[in-house]
Design a protein around this nucleic acid. Structure first.
Length: 108
DNA sequence: GTGTTGACATGCT
DNA sequence: AAGCATGCCAACA
């Protein structure tokens, strides 16, 4: 896998704040590889168990948990819940997505 | 070199 | 809103 791509993805995923989520496609876009959503997933699948990367904050574009129903998916749901993210069934509401087009959100 | 395989996305019905 | 079809592109066999 292209190391440039890999490192960029790690950076971006690491930058997702707790309590928020992003999508594979969005991460790929931010990394500069717009058509590589699947490879973001591949990288996540290759992450070592002890990795501190918040891979659980990365969902499908429609807000569904990628590996819903599998052990990893359950862990992901649990960790998201711990961070205050509402997981309804196997989906997360769009309002939890990090808005990258809104870099400087004005304070309320 | 060819065909299959995905932690995905988008458009159409 | 939910399902189905197509596109994507590096890794593998």
């Amino acid at each position: 896998m292209n190391p440039e791509f890999r490192d960029a993805v790690y950076q971006i995923v690491a930058a997702i704040p707790a309590g928020k989520v992003s999508s594979y496609g969005a991460v790929a876009r931010q990394a500069g590889f717009p058509r590589h959503a699947r490879f973001v997933g591949r990288l996540m699948s290759q992450l070592p168990q002890g990795s501190r990367l918040p891979w659980h904050r990365v969902l499908r574009g429609d807000g569904r948990i990628a590996l819903a129903g599998t052990p990893s998916g359950e862990i992901q749901v649990q960790r998201l819940s711990d961070e205050g993210v509402a997981v309804l069934g196997d989906k997360v509401p769009r309002r939890y997505f990090t808005d990258w087009s809104h870099p400087a959100p004005p304070p309320a």
